[in-house]
Design a protein around this nucleic acid. Structure first.
Lengths: 230, 230
DNA sequence: CGACGATTTGAATAGGATCAATGGGAGTGG
DNA sequence: CCACTCCCATTGATCCTATTCAAATCGTCG
C-alpha cells in the first residue's frame, strides 16, 4: 500500500476522519488492481471478499435473472462500492463489470467489518454513507416506478446538464446501450425517446447532446427534488 | 414512557443491546400515539422529526410525483421505519399513511442521532439495519426492473406462501388495490394478472388465495434468492 | 335499505419490447 | 494505409404488456 493510495482513500468522506493507525490496519492486505474493460469483477451470488474503491475508469453494477439483465447503477471515480455487502458478510447481491479499463483498490471486507466494530467514528461515517446509498436506491426506485421512459430520459439529461455545468451542451458519459439499460429501457426505445424529445430542443450528435429549450424540457420532465440527484 | 413500551423497543434487534441508561435517554421525549386508518403521517418533503416504530396496525410508505403515486413498501409490526432519514437529519424522502388504525412509537430523531454518536454499539447495529434496508430496496428495484407484472405477482404469492406457512392457502394482508400499487401496476391489471395465473393453479376468492399447483407456479415465477425475501 | 368504495370485466389506447434490416464507427490485421 | 469485421445505433414493422376509460357487480358499513 503506497502513500498515494492511502491519500486516495483519505479523500473519501467515509475514511476522512479515521486515525492513521486504524487506516493502516484496515488497508493491510489491500491492493490496487488494474482491470481491462468489460471484465466481470464479481457476481451477485459471490461472497463479499472486498470493499471496492474505484480509483480510475468506470464500473457498472447490474443484476440478472431469468436471462434478463439490467443496470442498477454506474460508479465513477473516486468512490467506494458494495459497502453494504462488505459490512454484513454475505453475498454481493449485485454483479459488477468494468465499462472501461479501471483501477480498483480492493480492501478486504473483514478489515472493514473490524474497523466498524473497533472504530466508533468510522461506524458513524458508515451509517451516513449507507443512509445516502439507501436514499439513492429509493430515488432510482421512484424514478422507474413513477415515470415513463421519456420522462426518465428527460430528467437524466437535466441532471447531467447541471452536473456537467456546460450550458446545455452535454456529453453522454456512457454508451447509449448502457444508458438505456440504466434508464430501464431497450436501446431501440432510447433512440425513439431521443426522437420524441427533439421538439423539446434535444439535439443528438453521437454522444454530444445539446439542450436548446431547457424550459420546455423541464416542463415535460417535471423534475423532483426527491427523485433526481442533488 | 411506560415499561411495556420500553420492552417493545428492546425486542427489536436495532436496540436489543443498548444499555438501559442509553435507552432511557433515547426514549426521553418519545411517545406512543394512536392513529386512525388512512391518515397521512408525514410527507416526503417534511423534515424528519421522529424515528417511527410501528407497534400495531399497518403503514404504507409511498411516493408521489406529477399526480402519480406508488407504494414503496408496507410496514408491519413490530418494526421501525424511516431510520435512514432519522439518522441524516433531512427530509423523510417518502410519505407515509396508515392502512389500519395503528399505534406508533415516535422517537425524536435528534435522540437517535445522539445515540448514534455516543453509543458505538448502537451505531454498529444501525449499520447492520441500514445495510439490510439497502438490500431490501435493491431487491424491490430488481424486481420491478427485471420482471413483468405477472411474474411479480407470482413471486409475491410464493413468498407469502412461505411466510404464512399455510400450505397453499394464503390470505392477502392488504387490499388488492394496495397490493397492485406495491407490485407496480393498476388494480385492473392485478385482476387480469390473477386471471392469467388461473391455469397455474391460483384460485382467488376475495382475499383468500389458494395455490393448487405450486410447481407450475414456480416454473412461471422463476424465483430468485437475490430478489425475493428470505 | 342505500351509499360508497373495491373489484372485476370489456374495449380502446398507449407505452415498450421484439424482430429485422440498415447504416456508421472503431479497432484489427494484412 | 486500407479493407474487413464487429458491434453500436437507428429505423421500420409488428407484437405484447399495461394503462385508461367505462360500466357492471359485489360487499361493507352506516
Amino acid at each position: 500500500m503506497r502513500d498515494s493510495e492511502k491519500e486516495i482513500v483519505r479523500s473519501l468522506p467515509l475514511f476522512s476522519s479515521m486515525c492513521d493507525d486504524n487506516l493502516d490496519a484496515m488497508l493491510a492486505g489491500s491492493f490496487l488492481q488494474r482491470f481491462p474493460t468489460t471484465v466481470i469483477l464479481f457476481s451477485e451470488s459471490d461472497l463479499t471478499d472486498f470493499l471496492h474503491v474505484l480509483v480510475e475508469g468506470q464500473v457498472e453494477l447490474f443484476a440478472s435473472t431469468n436471462n434478463r439483465e439490467g443496470t442498477m447503477t454506474l460508479i465513477k471515480p473516486i468512490a467506494t462500492f458494495v459497502l453494504a455487502s462488505a459490512l454484513v458478510d454475505g453475498a454481493y447481491q449485485l454483479s459488477a463489470r468494468t465499462l472501461e479499463a479501471s483501477q480498483i483498490l480492493m480492501i478486504p471486507a473483514e478489515n472493514v467489518r473490524k474497523a466498524m466494530r473497533e472504530d466508533p467514528d468510522f461506524a458513524q461515517k458508515a451509517v451516513l454513507e449507507l443512509a445516502a446509498c439507501y436514499h439513492g436506491v429509493v430515488r432510482a426506485y421512484k424514478n422507474i416506478k413513477l415515470r415513463t421512459a421519456v420522462e426518465r430520459l428527460a430528467n437524466y439529461l437535466l441532471v447531467q446538464n447541471r452536473r456537467q455545468n456546460t450550458k446545455g451542451a452535454i456529453t453522454l458519459p456512457v454508451e447509449k446501450r448502457t444508458l438505456a439499460s440504466m434508464l430501464g429501457m431497450t436501446p431501440e426505445n432510447l433512440s425513439r425517446a431521443f426522437s420524441t424529445l427533439k421538439p423539446y430542443g434535444v439535439a443528438v450528435e453521437g454522444a454530444k447532446i445539446r439542450l436548446e429549450k431547457l424550459d420546455d424540457l423541464e416542463t415535460l420532465a417535471k423534475p423532483s427534488e426527491f427523485i433526481d440527484s442533488h
